[in-house]
Design a binder for these strands. Structure first.
Length: 934
DNA sequence: CCTGTCACG
DNA sequence: GACGTACGTGACAGGG
């Protein structure tokens, strides 16, 4: 029995997003008990819907109702104005996964649930409201969004559900000073900070209303702007005409949204207990389930309390990992089935297969999707036909039985970019960068590697094979079985499709299972905040930095290589002369024999392998005995610079971009530091004059400069704060030279009488403290007798007793918990702390160092995560991170402004999560190259 | 593949 | 009382 919508009908239109955000902010971050999935917003949303349904009685009750949602963040307004809503904060990470659940909740309450890609909920509401009004019905829009006020009148009203306040034509006039049909004109003039609608500068709602009422309409006003008496207003309108007209287009709701349903489809329906109660049970809403069941005269559904044992078990039952349910997708219809399944589920595991390991150059060979454990599909798109040949003779034509690449991309793109669909990957930065090159921006995504790192840094590696073996008891197919290794290695596009499919599908399957297992642990182990604030959001930032790359001048490097070659040849001749024979200068073994056997120099010590140690410290000691060790040191320095830097860096210049693109490993260091490889741009020389010149090859393009900002003494500042050392804190507050201040405090030398040597010793002690000082280590570093070094340490602890306390407390904490924590709560596991013997010493020092190094790492991560938004409207790119330094490439004219913006972000990066008792100071430099900027 | 060496923070 | 020690990384060359 359906009623044709018309006179006497009453349509309720609920602004779904407003409900969700209200629910999200009203409730604490609740999680579902059984698996830790965040569920607070869904709970609030359901309560609001329930209360709403309950209140719908009496003569004013709706005959038709719909909840309208936004879909995706990109709408036609973004095409009009790319900054539209650009100042909105990103959706909180724990809210994203709840979005699809709110749709399911609406359907469970048997309320029509509508959204249309590319349109805001407001446009759909506008279209429906106009249709209903034209059909002679009444409309109530349940929202307090002022953008909807333009719709009020002629039977359309708004209802602020929270304040239970009806807004009619008079209400709109009270708010905007004009009738609803002129609201857009006022908004166009006044602009809107929330939505980033520009409007006319200097004109607010009051003035706008005044002008519109005087001239009748915005168009009339703009045409007759010259007549305005107030010079400021007149000028603003004349100067900003285009911007005002654009603003009007942005605030004007679209009443002609293409709808695939009619008003009749929105008729009020009673909830079906067999749908609603199971849903509430699935969400584990105990109170609401009971209440709803009671009202419906049904038994409350059973919600089992997860047993504590189940909560800590790492291996829930899942189907065995085998390839029986892996499917090769070769046509659009089959792919669409998988895409539909992903939409229904709200998440999917994704894996890409490519021709290589370098995500800047590798080509796509196939995609893999997994939605339920054990069920995965492989979509081959780039496999080459077999023809028996290899290398030059290998076929370049595509193999049969694949989807056209572009078709697959076009179909997958909306899914992979959909805000409400979570993508899951293992090391997703790689896949995201590959897909980015094909025009697909994967978001939002979870990364099992990063989840594992947040949970278990220090316990094990976070590669897929290690995780699969440890948590699933399954050894994935080694890639070597497909592509071989060494000289005969082939690229993935030469692998037969059926074999590739098994490998790829297994990877996606394993990834999904790991996610199902590890993700809930984040909440259970109270590490969700670490993952959500320090890991997940950093990944796309790093991806962008890697894509940016840094320009490296090949000629500079090449010239340096030649110069090094010549000097090395001269040194080599000299070395052979001094040794009395020719030998391989680069062989420590041969060198040791020459120094300690042939020449019988003192101090020859053999290591584990029976070879003499010939490290720099030993050669430096020997340099007083003979000329040879010094020449070896010089040769080694040049050899290092040439092989690792001036030669190798040239090989890393990307031919397409002319730049060097490093790869950052987010899980590379246990403490939270990043590591950099291929090439490592975190160890470019700087300490020696000769080495520093290599930084001259890192340049800015014409018209731009490099900007380098680095934290000054960040680890010592963190130590002063965490250990609560008042003398050090005060020194930092007063901006003193911290090493000199330490020396003064320790040795009683007034600051103005400080000698460089005493300061140097204090500096070594300060570093020693951060590393977990030992008399032996300090003695070796300072080249002083061990007793003397121990004396320094004793005196240091006497002057700063808080440091010893910090060390004792930290090691005690580590022994108790087998991990230590940064100020932000990042956990670094220290299982070795329980060991005995020399290993315990290592573990103890690592445990002392980790919270300090790790807190510094957390701080710069926070700065990096905030940086893209801070510099979004500046001509600047963030290129590199070197632990306490960030390097930017900036248009010359904006360099100083960017420096100040970035400095502010870096200096305040700990706030508001942690208040550091000591100011964080950032030094900035700029120049044509990295040497000048640093 | 492992070890020694050395570049960085 | 002896032992071996500064913390965290990655790249390269030599040598088995």
């Amino acid at each position: 029995m359906t009623t044709q919508f018309g006179t006497g009908c009453h349509l309720h239109l609920i602004d779904g997003s407003a409900f969700i955000f209200r629910a999200y902010h009203a409730l604490p971050p609740l999680t579902r008990k059984s698996d830790g999935v965040p569920i607070g917003a869904v709970a609030g949303f359901c309560n609001m819907l329930h209360r709403y349904v309950e209140g719908n009685t009496g003569p004013d009750a709706p005959t038709h109702v719909a909840v309208i949602f936004d879909k995706g963040s990109h709408t036609f307004r973004n095409d009009l104005y790319d900054l539209y809503k650009a100042n909105r904060d990103a959706m909180p990470e724990d809210l994203r996964p709840q979005m699809p659940l709110t749709r399911r909740a609406t359907e469970a309450f048997n309320i029509a649930c509508k959204e249309i890609a590319g349109y805001e909920a407001d446009d759909i509401i506008a279209t429906l409201a106009v249709q209903a009004r034209e059909a002679g019905g009444r409309v109530t829009i349940i929202s307090s969004d002022k953008d909807l006020m333009q719709l009020v009148g002629g039977g359309v009203e708004m209802l602020d559900a929270m304040k239970n306040l009806r807004i009619d034509v008079e209400g709109v006039e009270a708010k905007f000073g004009v009738k609803p049909d002129r609201v857009v004109d006022v908004q166009a003039l006044a602009g809107d900070a929330v939505d980033n609608v520009p409007g006319a500068p200097g004109i607010g709602i009051k003035t706008a209303a005044l002008l519109i009422n005087e001239y009748g309409s915005l168009e009339e006003l703009l045409d007759r702007a010259e007549e305005i008496k107030q010079p400021k207003r007149r000028q603003s309108l004349i100067d900003n005409r285009a911007q005002i007209e654009l603003s009007k287009k942005l605030v004007q709701l679209d009443c002609n949204t293409p709808l695939e349903f009619t008003l009749d489809d929105l008729e009020v329906r009673d909830p079906d207990p067999d749908v609603l109660l199971p849903f509430l049970a699935e969400m584990e809403f105990r109170t609401l389930s009971r209440r709803v069941a009671e009202q419906m005269g049904k038994d409350a559904p059973e919600i089992t309390e997860p047993s504590p044992a189940a909560a800590v078990s790492d291996a829930p039952e899942a189907p065995a990992i085998d390839d029986s349910a892996y499917e090769i997708v070769t046509d659009a219809a089959a792919l669409q089935t998988w895409i539909d399944r992903a939409y229904a589920r709200g998440h999917l595991a994704l894996d890409t297969e490519t021709t290589g390991l370098d995500d800047m150059t590798a080509d796509l060979v196939g995609f893999c999707l997994c939605i339920d454990a054990g069920h995965a599909c492989y979509v081959p798109v780039g496999h080459k036909a077999e023809d028996g040949g290899e290398g030059l003779f290998a076929s370049d034509t595509l193999a049969e039985g694949q989807m056209p690449l572009q078709t697959a991309l076009d179909m997958l793109k909306p899914l992979l970019e959909d805000d409400s669909i979570l993508k899951i990957g293992q090391n997703m930065k790689y896949d995201a960068k590959i897909l980015r090159r094909y025009g697909v921006t994967v978001a939002p995504y979870d990364d099992t590697m990063l989840i594992s790192y947040a949970l278990n840094a220090g316990l094990h590696n976070h590669g897929m094979d290690a995780l699969s073996e440890r948590y699933l008891g399954h050894t994935p197919i080694p890639i070597k079985e497909l592509i071989g290794s060494g000289k005969s290695q082939i690229t993935f596009d030469r692998v037969a499709i059926d074999k590739a499919a098994k490998y790829a599908a297994e990877d996606a399957d394993v990834t999904l299972r790991l996610w199902q297992l590890l993700k809930p642990r984040l909440h259970r182990e109270r590490l969700a905040t670490i993952y959500e604030t320090l890991e997940r959001p950093l990944s796309p930032v790093l991806a962008q930095m890697e894509v940016n790359g840094i320009q490296v001048d090949r000629n500079t490097l090449s010239r340096m290589s030649n110069a090094f070659s010549q000097k090395m040849a001269a040194l080599e001749a000299e070395i052979h002369e001094l040794a009395g024979e020719t030998f391989n200068v680069g062989s420590p073994k041969q060198l040791g024999e020459i120094l300690f056997e042939k020449m019988s120099l003192p101090g020859g010590k053999k290591g584990k392998t029976g070879a003499y140690a010939t490290g720099a410290d030993i050669l430096e000691d020997l340099a007083t005995e003979h000329d040879l060790p010094g020449r070896i040191l010089d040769w080694r320095q040049l050899s290092k610079l040439k092989s690792t830097y001036t030669d190798a860096l040239q090989e890393h210049i990307n031919p397409e971009t002319g730049r060097v693109h490093t790869s950052y490993m987010q899980t590379g260091a246990n403490t939270g530091r990043l590591s950099s490889s291929d090439p490592n741009l975190q160890n470019i020389p700087v300490r020696s004059e000769e080495g520093r010149r290599i930084r001259e090859a890192f340049v800015a393009p014409e018209g731009k400069v490099l900007l380098s900002l680095d934290y000054s003494q960040i680890e010592l500042r963190i130590l002063a704060h965490t250990a609560g050392i008042d003398a050090l804190k005060q020194a930092f507050h007063e901006g003193q030279d911290i090493h000199a201040a330490t020396a003064s405090e320790m040795f009683g030398v007034p600051l103005d009488e400080m000698t460089p040597d005493v300061r140097r010793q204090a500096k070594a002690i300060n570093f020693g403290v951060i590393y977990g000082i030992s008399g032996f280590g300090l003695a070796r570093n300072l080249r002083i007798p061990r007793a003397e070094a121990q004396g320094f340490i004793d005196r240091y602890f006497e002057r700063f007793p808080g440091i010893r306390e910090y060390m004792d407390e930290t090691t005690a904490f580590a022994k108790e918990n087998l991990y230590v924590e940064t100020l932000f709560g990042r956990r670094i596991h220290t299982p070795e702390i329980a060991a005995s013997g020399p290993r315990a010493g290592f573990a103890k020092r690592a445990a002392i160092n980790a919270p300090i190094q790790g807190t510094a790492a957390d701080i710069i991560r926070r700065a990096m995560i905030r940086m893209p938004e801070a510099i979004a409207n500046l001509p600047a790119k963030m290129l590199l991170q070197v632990h306490d330094e960030l390097v930017f490439e900036v248009e010359e004219s904006a360099a100083d402004e960017v420096a100040e913006v970035a400095r502010r972000i870096m200096e305040n990066a700990a706030d508001p999560a942690v208040h550091i008792d000591v100011p964080l100071v950032v030094d900035a430099g700029k120049g044509m190259n990295w040497a000048e900027a640093h």
